[in-house]
Lab assay of single mutants.
Amino acid sequence: MSIQHFRVALIPFFAAFCLPVFAHPETLVKVKDAEDQLGARVGYIELDLNSGKILESFRPEERFPMMSTFKVLLCGAVLSRVDAGQEQLGRRIHYSQNDLVEYSPVTEKHLTDGMTVRELCSAAITMSDNTAANLLLTTIGGPKELTAFLHNMGDHVTRLDRWEPELNEAIPNDERDTTMPAAMATTLRKLLTGELLTLASRQQLIDWMEADKVAGPLLRSALPAGWFIADKSGAGERGSRGIIAALGPDGKPSRIVVIYTTGSQATMDERNRQIAEIGASLIKHW
């Protein structure tokens, strides 16, 4: 067993022997301040990774656009098919120029040779490549099948209805392509620590998230040296922004954090800054 596999296998073990965790309302004060600064709703939840206990939450059962955070769930569904012998990570998928959609920095470079399922998941999570996500959605049967996968996990809230990039439209009061912070946090925890996926697939999923290259201005910008984070960000229309993450000190994750916002007129930089400040408060009061 590799060191990384050992780390993920012992996530519940280490967490069980940690000192009790206590909620700190100071972080919620910052979440509410972010709402004021952005002029928009902000949803927040913080779960203990081992027990699933909610440590703090704000608007945990209000719907927010998922945006690209759905790509972690998508690759979880792909990995479940791999575990069941219905898919192979090494299978190569070929596609054409007509398949390319807006923001496809990886797939646009491989029109000639195609990409493997493993490479597509890596591109979808680490670079948020939209064509990679659409190609992977095709392998599982489309958005409705991802929703069905989530329902089978016990998540009857999260739903995907459309493809990239239309799913980022974020129309107010439109339930399409949305989740709730509580539902997303619980589902992410199941994917990373539950028995739904094999140990190898859980490790692969967290490795992809740990290698995320496009979430630097968010929670990662607030992390002290030595902290662990595996995350996936999302951005959408109407001032929408979000991030889902597993993080913790001492090089291992111990909490799940989900943050979503929508309806702001603020710039992307300002949305990023507010999420980073929430992260800084979380870490300060850990």
Results as ranks from 00 to 15, higher is better:
S201G: 03
H156N: 10
A246H: 12
I256Q: 11
V78C: 01
N50Y: 09
E102P: 01
D48A: 06
A124R: 03
G226M: 11
K284H: 05
E210R: 12
K144V: 09
L79P: 02
A280K: 00
S122I: 12
L199H: 11
L191W: 00
A40F: 09
L100E: 06
I171K: 01
G234I: 06
N152Q: 11
E145D: 10
G154S: 05
S104H: 09
T139S: 12
Y44M: 03
L191T: 12
N272L: 03
T138C: 04
P172S: 04
T112E: 01
P165Y: 03
A211D: 04
A148Y: 03
L55R: 09
I229F: 15
T261G: 13
H156I: 13
L160D: 14
T267P: 10
G263Y: 02
T139E: 13
H110D: 02
L219Y: 13
E270Q: 14
S233T: 00
F228K: 14
G194S: 09
I244E: 11
D207A: 04
V157D: 15
I125N: 11
S240T: 07
R118H: 12
R162C: 00
M209L: 13
N152K: 11
S264Y: 02
Q265T: 08
L223K: 13
L111W: 06
G114P: 12
M209S: 05
V257D: 15
N130M: 11
Q88L: 06
D99I: 09
T261D: 07
T131W: 07
Q204Y: 07
S264D: 11
S57E: 03
E62G: 08
T131R: 08
V29S: 13
V258M: 11
E108W: 05
D129A: 03
E195L: 00
N98I: 07
S104I: 11
C121K: 01
D207E: 05
G39A: 08
T147D: 02
A34P: 08
V42P: 10
S221D: 14
M268A: 15
K232P: 05
A215V: 12
L196V: 05
S128G: 15
N50L: 07
A182T: 07
E277L: 08
G248N: 10
A276F: 12
T262D: 12
M153H: 07
L49W: 03
T179F: 11
E270Y: 15
G85V: 06
H94R: 10
E46S: 04
T138A: 12
L38Y: 00
A170M: 00
R241P: 11
G251Y: 04
L188N: 15
I140W: 01
D250M: 11
E119S: 01
V101L: 00
L89C: 02
D48I: 13
T147F: 09
A132F: 12
S104N: 00
E164A: 12
M127Q: 15
I206N: 12
V258I: 07
K252R: 06
N98T: 11
T198S: 05
V214N: 15
A148E: 08
D231Q: 15
V214Q: 15
M268W: 10
K190C: 15
W286V: 05
S221M: 15
G242D: 10
Q203V: 05
R273E: 14
A246M: 11
Y44E: 01
R271E: 14
E175R: 06
M67I: 15
L197A: 03
P224A: 11
L47G: 01
K252Y: 14
E56G: 10
L137E: 03
D231R: 10
V257S: 15
E61Q: 05
A222I: 15
D269G: 12
S128H: 13
K284M: 09
F64N: 06
G114Q: 11
A183L: 11
K30D: 15
R238E: 04
T187L: 03
L135K: 03
G141I: 08
S80T: 14
I125A: 09
A211W: 04
H94C: 01
A123D: 02
L49H: 01
K109G: 06
N50G: 11
I283Y: 05
L120R: 06
A124D: 02
D36E: 13
R238H: 01
Q204N: 04
P249S: 09
Q86R: 10
V157A: 13
V72K: 00
Q203T: 02
T178R: 12
G154Y: 04
K109L: 07
H110T: 03
G39I: 14
G39P: 10
V117N: 01
P25D: 03
E87S: 08
L160K: 03
L111G: 04
R81E: 02
Q265S: 11
A200T: 05
E102G: 14
P217H: 04
I243E: 12
E62P: 08
N98E: 10
A124T: 05
P253E: 07
H24D: 12
D33W: 14
L205F: 04
F58S: 07
S68P: 08
I171M: 00
Q274T: 10
R159A: 13
D207V: 01
F228L: 13
L73I: 10
T139Y: 02
L223T: 05
A185M: 08
I256D: 12
F70T: 02
T198P: 02
F70H: 15
L100N: 09
Q37F: 04
M115R: 06
L197R: 00
T187R: 00
A148Q: 08
L89M: 09
A182S: 09
V214R: 15
I171E: 01
I244G: 11
A148N: 06
T139M: 13
L219V: 07
R202Y: 04
E169S: 08
A40M: 05
E277S: 07
S122P: 04
R118K: 13
K32G: 08
G242N: 09
G52Y: 09
T261S: 12
